[in-house]
Nucleic acid binder design. Structure first.
Lengths: 227, 227
DNA sequence: GCGCCGGCTTGACCTGAATCAAGGCGCTCG
DNA sequence: CGAGCGCCTTGATTCAGGTCAAGCCGGCGC
């Protein structure tokens, strides 16, 4: 981790771009910009470990952060993938205690650190950001319910199909790009890399998709939905 | 579902007992009591189904509510078990859209229904309840991360052991009572009833616990922690 | 009392996915 | 250019836990 110096305008712009802080007045952003600290992490560096005491939370400005848990045997389950504008490690701000999971930089990541106290102080003056935070936590809750559903009630083929359809819905086109390395995707879907590889192969043989590196083309959307 | 008539004082007391609304002034509780609707559900009745459009959320006053998802084959995964004072179905209040899961009454349940608009109107006047809500969502997020961790990274024996230790920590004594039927517990832990039965038997044979109906006695806490 | 029903247990079997092991392909770096 | 290293694929094997199928037990209505 390196401290990172951002000039006030760019910090301000970065803050304003977050859905969390949208609708905040310029002077509030200025205030936030003053009390936040910019940091840069290199690929693979950890922002925090599950169990660390939390003094505040992070706001991702640039890059991608992986939030995951590790089993006693080293196996990993990815919980969230966070991009620019997303808060990271916010749970202990409202509930106290430690971070529930570990956050790792995937590639270079720039972010802001906001102390718990500073954020709560701002929230007391501008309660609407609490609504923004509630919306974000709600979305995460929904995503986690889907993940639990996947892990417990669906077989791997269905999980993968759903994920591909999700990506396609976001992208809008039939040619989608996997947002991470296949190994990471496997861990996000709760399967081994070998199984992911085999399952992609199977779907390809069934003419439902075609795979080229990290690019996947959806050939038969209906067929995928049938799983 | 039956409409339920509560006199103002008891409704008021019920509201005040929720951690969500703690610290609210008497007049705010009065206001809430006026805008909320009390309802009673019989065992097995559903408060809402996953996918239903949400006009508001529920506050459990008495009894226990099971929040779960069902797989296409009918298998069930319990997401939360909610007792008195807990809000239920609150996610769509902040994010819009439908309920993410299905809520079922386990035994007779009394609750209040609060419309989205009424709650948000109150929140605008008393932002501290947003902090209360954030704390509750944070706790649920933490619980869900633990559930994902269990399902993906732990084997069934470890899940069961952890659950028993959780119960014991809450109860404080070595003799703990399962809060639901064993079938429901199995579904909560993401395993089949048969497997739960076998695993309880195994732990018993290892002299780590002893089971009598719904009562479990922890014999070797260290041994359980080792899993 | 007797039969029935729902919830639990037990046993036999099956299968989906993990694991282990061995390459292959495409990098970057010396 | 070739060595070495990540990352991915492919094949063989294993195993945890699900499914299916019987019984068992306790409560409850008749």
């Amino acid at each position: 981790m390196k401290p990172l110096t951002l000039d006030a305008p760019s910090k301000n712009a970065a803050l304003g771009a977050s859905p969390l802080l949208q609708g905040l007045a310029g002077q509030d952003l200025d205030c936030l910009a003053r009390i936040s600290v910019a940091r840069r992490y290199d690929s693979g560096e950890m922002l925090f470990l599950a169990g660390d005491e939390a003094a505040g939370f992070f706001l991702v400005l640039d890059g991608q952060v992986k939030v995951s848990r590790f089993g006693s045997d080293g196996r990993e389950q990815v919980i969230h993938l966070l991009g620019p504008g997303q808060p990271c490690g916010e749970v202990p701000v409202f509930e106290g205690g430690a971070f529930p999971a570990t956050a790792t930089a995937l590639g270079r990541v720039d972010c802001l650190f906001l102390s718990r106290a500073a954020f709560l102080e701002l929230a007391a003056r501008r309660p609407q950001i609490l609504l923004g935070m509630l919306a974000i936590l709600s979305r995460r809750l929904r995503a986690l319910v889907d993940l639990v559903d996947d892990l417990s009630l669906k077989e791997v083929t269905a999980r993968l199909a759903r994920h591909l359809l999700d990506l396609q819905r976001e992208a809008g086109v039939d040619r989608v790009e996997l947002e991470t390395a296949k190994g990471t995707l496997a861990s996000r879907l709760g399967m081994s890399p070998e199984t992911l590889s085999r399952t992609l192969g199977k779907l390809q043989r069934q003419r439902l998709i075609s795979v080229d590196g990290r690019t996947v083309r959806i050939l038969d959307r209906g067929g995928l939905e049938g799983l």
